[in-house]
Amino acid sequence: MNQILSADRTLDATGLSCPEPVMMLHQHVRDLPAGGLLEVIATDPSTRRDIPKFCVFLGHELVQQDEEGGTYRYWIRKKSD
């Protein structure tokens, strides 16, 4: 069971297709303070692959992810500088 996380900001990328969610994610993470938590809501199944890769590549922490009824949610903690 997933814990309830309180995000500093939320990115709603529902209805958008690759590569838009990840492009928007990149901008939103850039605007967060170090250690900030961003919740991403998406409907594109490719985000299940793309968002974890984004986090690994840039060093951010994918704290949690889940899927319910075709909606994918990700909680990403921005790396400390």
Rank of each mutant, 00 (worst) to 15 (best):
N2F: 11
C18L: 14
M1E: 01
M24S: 14
L11Q: 02
L5H: 12
L62I: 14
T14L: 13
L11W: 05
C18P: 06
L58F: 12
A7G: 03
C18K: 14
D81N: 09
R48Y: 13
E67L: 07
S46Q: 15
A13L: 03
Q64R: 06
E39A: 08
V40D: 05
E68S: 12
E68G: 10
T10I: 11
R49V: 13
G59E: 00
R30N: 09
V22Y: 06
T14P: 02
Y72P: 05
V40L: 15
C55M: 02
D44V: 03
R77T: 01
C55H: 04
K79E: 05
K78R: 08
T43N: 04
T10F: 00
I41D: 05
P21V: 01
S17N: 13
M23Y: 13
M23S: 15
M1F: 02
V40M: 15
G36R: 10
E20Q: 14
T47R: 04
R9D: 05
G35W: 08
R73L: 11
F57C: 11
E39N: 04
V56I: 10
V22I: 11
D81E: 09
T71W: 06
E68V: 05
T47A: 02
L32A: 04
I4E: 14
L16G: 00
H28Q: 14
L38D: 06
Q27P: 00
V22T: 12
G69N: 14
G36Y: 07
A34T: 04
A34E: 15
Q64V: 12
E39Y: 00
D66P: 04
P52H: 07
I51H: 03
E67D: 15
L37D: 12
L58Y: 11
D8G: 09
S6G: 06
T71S: 13
V56N: 08
I4V: 12
L11R: 03
T14D: 03
E20I: 10
L16E: 01
G36A: 12
T10L: 02
R73D: 06
I4F: 07
F57Y: 15
L32I: 05
G15C: 09
G35K: 07
Y72I: 00
I41C: 12
V29Y: 07
L25G: 03
S46K: 13
D66Y: 09
E20C: 08
M24G: 09
P21T: 01
M1G: 10
P45I: 01
L58E: 06
Q27T: 07
R73S: 07
M1P: 04
H28T: 07
D31A: 12
